Simulated assay, not measured.
Amino acid sequence: MIACGADVIARHPRSWEKEDYIYDPLHYLALIEQKTNALDQAAPLADWELPEAYIILRRLMEARMGKKGKREFVQVLRLLETFQIADVEAGIQSALDRGTIGFDAVKHLVLCRIERRPPRLDLTVYPYLPRAYVAVTSPSDYMALLSGGGL
């Protein structure tokens, strides 16, 4: 147990083995958020088994946003400091299904899941997503299709 005065900061099982370390990856995420290059080499994260959706999200974030994507992925991991792993995973999966790859989207979707309300994502914050353009149909084009003629 690690304490500061009367406040318990962390609890870990004790190991009596020589040179054995017991880590809680969540305790290191704030530091890794500042030094994102340590994400791949940090000993506390080495044996951390995360669900597949996390790995897919990380790969997409880094591919789309580079170093900023790595930092945003750590922010997504930091949601685990507050929320259950299943809720965060569901938020990630929902973001992947929608194509809204980003910390803000995942956080919004996690909160919507917990609060049992429908998500309302503002897609203007995702400039890299392709935009759909639907032109106004001309009545003459529509009539040509009905009559069997081509455009």
Rank of each mutant, 00 (worst) to 15 (best):
143 M>G: 04
55 I>F: 10
101 I>W: 03
78 R>S: 02
146 L>N: 09
11 R>I: 14
126 Y>L: 12
149 G>D: 15
22 I>K: 12
7 D>L: 12
148 G>E: 09
61 M>D: 08
31 L>H: 15
7 D>T: 11
16 W>Y: 11
149 G>R: 15
90 A>R: 07
62 E>Q: 15
88 V>N: 02
135 A>M: 08
108 H>E: 04
78 R>T: 00
71 R>K: 15
134 V>Y: 09
1 M>V: 06
31 L>P: 01
78 R>E: 01
37 N>G: 13
34 Q>K: 15
99 G>R: 03
5 G>D: 06
14 R>V: 15
83 F>H: 11
88 V>Y: 03
104 D>E: 07
87 D>V: 02
117 R>C: 08
5 G>T: 04
19 E>Q: 14
64 R>I: 08
111 L>W: 00
58 R>T: 07
25 P>E: 11
51 P>D: 07
43 A>W: 11
81 E>F: 00
95 A>P: 03
39 L>A: 09
95 A>V: 01
59 R>S: 14
8 V>Q: 11
46 A>R: 14
138 S>R: 09
103 F>K: 01
128 Y>T: 10
98 R>W: 05
33 E>V: 01
130 P>H: 11
64 R>F: 11
78 R>Y: 00
71 R>Y: 02
13 P>I: 08
32 I>E: 09
20 D>T: 12
69 G>N: 05
147 S>G: 11
61 M>E: 15
43 A>G: 05
30 A>P: 11
35 K>F: 15
140 S>A: 12
129 L>F: 07
94 S>V: 01
44 P>C: 11
16 W>M: 10
123 L>I: 11
14 R>H: 13
46 A>F: 05
94 S>Y: 03
81 E>C: 05
101 I>P: 03
96 L>T: 01
138 S>D: 14
76 V>S: 01
70 K>Y: 01
3 A>K: 13
99 G>I: 02
88 V>T: 02
70 K>Q: 14
38 A>G: 05
94 S>W: 02
50 L>P: 06
70 K>R: 15
98 R>A: 13
2 I>V: 07
35 K>Y: 15
131 R>G: 09
132 A>Q: 14
41 Q>C: 10
81 E>A: 07
28 Y>I: 04
46 A>P: 02
108 H>I: 00
29 L>D: 08
131 R>N: 12
36 T>V: 15
114 I>M: 05
79 L>R: 00
144 A>G: 01
58 R>H: 14
148 G>Q: 09
148 G>P: 10
130 P>I: 07
137 T>M: 13
128 Y>Q: 14
91 G>L: 03
12 H>Q: 09
66 G>W: 04
83 F>M: 01
148 G>N: 08
71 R>S: 12
141 D>M: 09
72 E>T: 03
41 Q>I: 12
68 K>M: 05
38 A>W: 15
71 R>I: 10
56 I>Y: 06
64 R>W: 08
137 T>G: 12
127 P>I: 08
125 V>Q: 14
135 A>Q: 11
19 E>H: 13
37 N>H: 14
45 L>W: 12
101 I>Y: 03
39 L>S: 04
123 L>N: 05
143 M>A: 14
119 P>I: 02
23 Y>T: 05
